[in-house]
Design a protein around this nucleic acid. Structure first.
Length: 265
DNA sequence: AACCGCGCCTGTTCGC
DNA sequence: TGCGAACAGGCGCGGT
């Protein structure tokens, strides 16, 4: 988003092209016409969504899904669903091969009322996210804590990889009922979520194991994964522990979860 | 209301 | 070696 900000904020869009009518959902057909001639005022993030504000009073809602990227000044690529050119000659391409992404148009004043943002939980790196807040959200829930962490209404922005990573760091079993996680463990979890996200962001994020960019480069955080994708390995908390069976992989809610049964309770 | 599981999509990897 | 099946991810939705 920093790159987009430097590239587009304060610039006037000359041309926008929509190369297919839908991505995950139908894209508003008027999007290119709304973008053309508009000045980009700035970007903000909410959970896994980005919002690009325009001087016309519109905002563009953007979700990268799992394989989406914003290419800056790159030649038109396969699966480039939207392209934007500024009057200065800058180019941005929205590329999303698997099309789990979202592009939508809304009025800036209605941003938080958008269907996909309404009811979203606190930002994990913001002041409004704390142990008491998380405890209140988890109270009485029978759902497994791992599944609850993926629920964007509980806390915003956590995906499948970071849910496993944060639970490992906090020493919490992914299968424990969300409402039965002790107060002290919730405090550890809040810290772990923050640490995991901060480290991941600093490392440039994670790339999918099976998705290599055209340049061949991946994000770097996957090298720092402590449990995700490490089935059978000894975790870093169990060096040479004879009673440790190694990192296990289970399925919860149709998604894989990785954890260490010895240290996560 | 809470909760579960499916479907969407494509490139990569796995197993026969 | 080649081919199809399985898999990965986020999120809405339909069913219980």
């Amino acid at each position: 988003m920093r790159g987009l900000d430097g590239h587009l904020t304060g610039r006037r869009i000359a041309v926008a092209r929509l190369n297919r009518p839908d991505i995950r959902f139908l894209v508003p057909p008027e999007l290119p016409a709304v973008l053309a001639g508009a000045v980009v005022l700035g970007f903000r993030r909410r959970g896994k969504f980005m919002l690009m504000r325009l001087d016309s009073g519109y905002s563009v809602l953007i979700h990268l899904g799992m394989s989406g990227r914003m290419l800056l000044d790159a030649p038109a690529a396969l699966h480039e669903h939207l392209s934007i050119e500024t009057e200065e000659g800058g180019r941005v391409g929205f590329v999303d091969p698997r099309r789990f992404g979202v592009l939508d148009l809304l009025r800036t004043v209605d941003e938080d009322g958008h269907k996909m943002l309404a009811g979203m939980g606190p930002e994990p790196l913001g002041n409004e996210f704390s142990a008491p807040v998380l405890a209140a959200k988890l109270k009485g829930k029978g759902t497994a804590i791992k599944v609850a962490l993926l629920d964007q209404r509980i806390v915003a922005g956590i995906g499948n990889i970071y849910a496993s990573e944060a639970l490992f760091r906090a020493g919490i079993s992914p299968t424990r009922a969300a409402g039965k996680v002790s107060r002290s463990r919730i405090e550890a979890l809040v810290q772990s979520i923050r640490e995991t996200l901060i480290e991941a962001i600093a490392a440039g994020g994670s790339s999918l194991r099976d998705y290599v960019q055209p340049s061949g480069e991946l994000g770097y955080f996957q090298h720092a994964w402590k449990v995700y994708g490490r089935t059978g390995e000894a975790c870093e908390k169990c060096p040479g522990e004879p009673v440790c069976a190694g990192i296990k992989c289970i399925t919860q809610g149709g998604r894989s979860t990785f954890y260490c049964a010895r240290t996560q309770k």
